[in-house]
Amino acid sequence: MSDISDRVKKIVVEHLSVEEDKVTESASFIDDLGADSLDTVELVMAFEEEFGIEIPDDAAETIQTVGDAVKFITENSEG
């Protein structure tokens, strides 16, 4: 879990160019981290690539926060 969380946070920091300490589990990509709708599409792509999973569009729409992403990836990745 912590490994997934760290990797998710690293991707978010890189893609949104935000300070690491702002990337908390409850942080919303759009409301707290300054992402727009295209940024969130790209983030989901980066998660898919990093974790070797596929995140369907309807699931992607429910991933609004860092914690949402960690939870989905934890439940859907094999490792």
């Binding site: 295209l38 792509m45 898919e48 690539e49 596929e54």
Partner: peptide
């Protein structure tokens, strides 16, 4: 197709 960036076109 799932790896083409949303920022490609704009």
């Amino acid at each position: 197709p799932r790896r083409v960036s949303p920022f490609f076109i704009p």
